[in-house]
Design a binder for these strands. Structure first.
Lengths: 243, 243
DNA sequence: ACCCGACAGGTTGTTTTACCAAGTCTGAGC
DNA sequence: GCTCAGACTTGGTAAAACAACCTGTCGGGT
């Protein structure tokens, strides 16, 4: 038997067209060759061409318009752009990767908002781990992480030591939970006196507060991350295709 | 002519199967009827059945395995989440759909930030259209739209009348531009005296400011949208799968 | 009795030919 | 200048065939 298996023709066509788009042969905004032209050039049937073009459209490389043709959009924006969602990095990377200091680690009664995001009764207790992240020697972000007490048991999150492992990886291996999606809320508010002091910021500039509720596939809340950013030093940037 | 158009057969099949999965006729984990059975039951050809099943697989409803069959997975988790990007709605829907009033429409010299997002020399002029959007009779959002002067010529954006058509649709049909993707920046700041007055908000609560730079496939900036939201009344919410 | 391979019949995956419908553009003819 | 026919585009459906894969059953061999 042959170990090397040839990919199907339509998949080969997809790759060929992707290469041409990336190399500039088909620049963004231009019109792709028509189905008939592709049939002649690659010596395949129309359904094969259509299958390849459908894949490209669903991946965002091209845009089709009945009666006119197919337009090149370029390499899909979301594919390469690792969205720098705040909190994502904190969940994925070890704490030892970024400078900063642990300012709190223990059981607390979380705010109503956090309790609601964790879907736990208010006034019950959760574990809080809070870290002041520094950049250029100055404190820049205050990152807080809440999780139900039973999820913190048996993990290294309760220790005062910086984690040598990403939080997601740690929780997955120790507790067997699977992160699936994140519900994100962005708000702005004025800092409390303590926050302004910790972050070394004036009291009259607002804070960007990003809450991220991490859930598993059945929408059960696992952890909540809050990232506090002084608005005079940080802003959030993202890019997405128009639908 | 008939305004009601029948959806294609494969789309009807998709909906029929989705309903059966949601109603429990095809419970998760069970085996879907084979292609041949579906062909007989719905009286369609095999390509039509395959097209419907492909859609269901790509959307995460089912899982297929060559030689065995197709397994039901259930309603995909992320299916119904439409991200309500601020500004998206303003670009897509007619101004007459949302209550509010036009507060400004004319050529201005935009701020450095807007000029930079439009990639035009600072101190050159752009067209500004600003609208105060109301909800429950109270002003809630201040939406501003800048675009290069040449892109505003020949459009109804320069008139003081509310647009009866989505801005994206209007610009596409009048000027032939194609919206491709949006680069979004989110910041927080204190309102100016005029902004606080227009929005009817206290001067000591911050504003969430969302800038959206709309670009075409070749990354040429087309328009810039700014949405100002009083942070005590609005927040941004979004959901996305973890990678 | 047990094991193992061949084989038949089921399944999905891929490719081809063919035809019609619907949207867009151009140019001939009025 | 205007309209409309025709050519070109993509979208959808049908019918057929072959390939690849899985799972049984029916053998023959140990």
């Amino acid at each position: 038997m042959s170990l090397e298996s040839v990919p199907p023709k339509y998949a080969q066509l997809v790759q060929a067209l992707q290469r041409r788009i990336e190399s500039g042969t088909y620049p963004p905004g231009s019109l792709l060759p028509s189905e008939h032209q592709l049939i002649k050039e690659f010596s395949v049937s129309r359904p094969t061409v259509v299958a390849a073009l459908r894949v490209l459209r669903e991946q965002g490389w091209i845009d089709s318009q009945q009666g006119k043709g197919r337009f090149v959009r370029g390499r899909p924006a979301m594919a390469s752009m690792e969205s720098n969602r705040p909190g994502q990095a904190y969940l994925a990377n070890p704490e030892t990767d970024t400078p900063g200091e642990l300012v709190e680690a223990g059981a607390v009664t979380p705010s109503n908002r956090v309790a609601s995001l964790l879907e736990m009764p208010s006034k019950s207790r959760a574990f809080l781990r809070r870290r002041l992240v520094a950049g250029d020697g100055e404190p820049t972000e205050l990152v807080s992480l809440w999780l139900p007490l039973e999820l913190s048991e048996g993990t290294d999150l309760t220790s005062g030591e910086p984690l040598r492992e990403g939080i997601r990886e740690h929780l997955t291996s120790r507790k067997g939970v699977r992160f699936d999606h994140i519900v994100e809320q962005i708000t702005a508010r004025m800092p409390t006196g303590q926050e302004a002091k910790q972050l070394g910021m004036p009291k009259n500039v607002p804070l960007l507060a990003v809450f991220g509720a991490v859930r598993d596939a059945s929408s059960r809340p696992l952890v909540v991350v809050e990232v506090l950013l002084p608005a005079d030093r940080h802003e959030l940037e993202d890019a997405y295709p128009v639908t």
